[in-house]
């Protein structure tokens, strides 16, 4: 049992990162690094904040990606494809 704090205060900012919401995923984004132009649109539009632009292109943090597919749908050069998750 977790002991509750007074007023239910949560004192650990951004502790939601402990929740690996990537386990919800049924489809996963696959980034074609050749096609990616590193514009950052996918990262801007990701509701999870799970995409960062690196030197090699868009990098999806699979710990949090829920597989919504917004990144693939909105990518201006169609560099991201959604594929069935295999676990």
């Amino acid at each position: 049992m977790t002991e509750t704090t007074t007023g239910g205060t949560i004192k650990d900012p951004k502790s939601s990162k402990k929740n690996k919401t990537g386990t919800w995923r049924t489809f996963k984004p696959n980034v074609d690094k050749e096609k990616c132009i590193k514009c950052g649109k996918c990262g801007e539009l990701c509701p999870e904040g799970a995409i960062r632009i690196t030197e090699e292109g868009a990098k999806v943090n699979m710990d949090y990606c829920k597989g919504c597919g917004i990144c693939a749908k909105e990518c201006p050069v169609k560099a991201i494809k959604m594929e069935k998750e295999e676990k």
């Binding site: 900012p13 951004k14 939601s16 990162k17 402990k18 929740n19 690996k20 919401t21 919800w24 995923r25 990262g43 539009l45 990701c46 509701p47 999870e48 904040g49 799970a50 960062r52 632009i53 943090n61 710990d63 949090y64 829920k66 597989g67 919504c68 597919g69 917004i70």
Partner: peptide, 24 residues
């Protein structure tokens, strides 16, 4: 890139427009 002030691991549904609004 600076970390979001509305962090990953929230339990919004996949594709949530409101969560995206809060990030920004």
């Amino acid at each position: 890139m600076e970390d979001d002030l509305f962090a990953s691991g929230h339990r919004a549904c996949a594709g949530c427009g409101s969560a995206l609004a809060l990030r920004h």
